[in-house]
Design a protein around this nucleic acid. Structure first.
Length: 213
DNA sequence: GCAAAGATTTGCT
DNA sequence: GCAAATCTTTGCC
């Protein structure tokens, strides 16, 4: 399936993680597409490297990388083998295991140097819908890290997997906008509306949700 | 080998 | 609203 179509289809899908602590899951409400070696915002722009190798493999696998030396980001690989592409999951609306997500957010935040009591208090007061509003926060809340790289997200037996949107659930209101945090990329890649959000969800990261189609 | 930058988040001015 | 925190990957000498 083409990556932009896959990105739209991913909205509303459940991201599920089973650990010793139990089941955590969330409804995907924000994704970004990174497509091909020509995309000057993609990790694949320098060709195949040790880090991005999984992007060159078959669709449905997890690509997890460390960004800014601090946060892990989760992607779903798309396109056929040999065509590097992935969808960055930027936000999910928590469904199952919300207490566990809050605990994980707290534990992660307090590990940081310079962490303050005010930060811990802020996380304790966060509404459930704001527990995973950002790519680094999705992995923090769900307990995903680089050891999950290359996992098959389409395998129903996998501890980290995708599950289809429940049939009785409302369909997402899909809006497309430019991608976030890629100011280093040249045009036209910087301006492509390859970020997709469910505009009907209270859970969306970033500020500019307007200007889409 | 070394320097620089990065698909982010938090804290302080 | 800006800069720090933090470390892997990439590019160049």
């Amino acid at each position: 399936m083409p990556s932009l179509q896959a990105a739209r289809s991913l909205l509303g899908v459940r991201l599920v993680h089973h650990t010793a602590a139990g089941r955590r899951s969330g409804r995907i409400v924000e994704v970004e597409a990174y497509i091909g070696t020509e995309d000057q915002a993609s990790h694949a722009r320098f060709g195949r490297t040790n880090r991005n190798a999984v992007m060159f493999g078959p669709a449905g696998r997890a690509y997890v990388y460390l960004v800014y030396g601090m946060y892990d980001c989760l992607n779903v690989v798309t396109e056929t083998a040999g065509h590097p592409a992935a969808l960055l999951i930027r936000a999910v609306e928590p469904v199952d295991g919300t207490d566990q997500m809050r605990d994980a957010r707290l534990a992660r935040a307090l590990r940081r140097a310079g962490a303050t009591a005010a930060t811990a208090e802020r996380i304790r007061r966060l509404p459930v819908h704001a527990l995973a509003t950002g790519p680094g926060l999705v992995t923090a809340a769900l307990g995903i890290d680089r050891s999950d790289n290359e996992r098959d997200l389409c395998d129903p037996q996998s501890p980290l997997r995708l599950e289809v949107r429940p049939a009785n659930e409302r369909a997402p209101l899909v809006v497309a906008t430019p991608r976030i945090g890629i100011g280093y990329a040249a045009e036209p890649w910087r301006s492509h509306a390859w970020r997709f959000i469910d505009a009907s969800s209270p859970t969306v990261s970033g500020r500019d949700t307007a200007g889409g189609c």
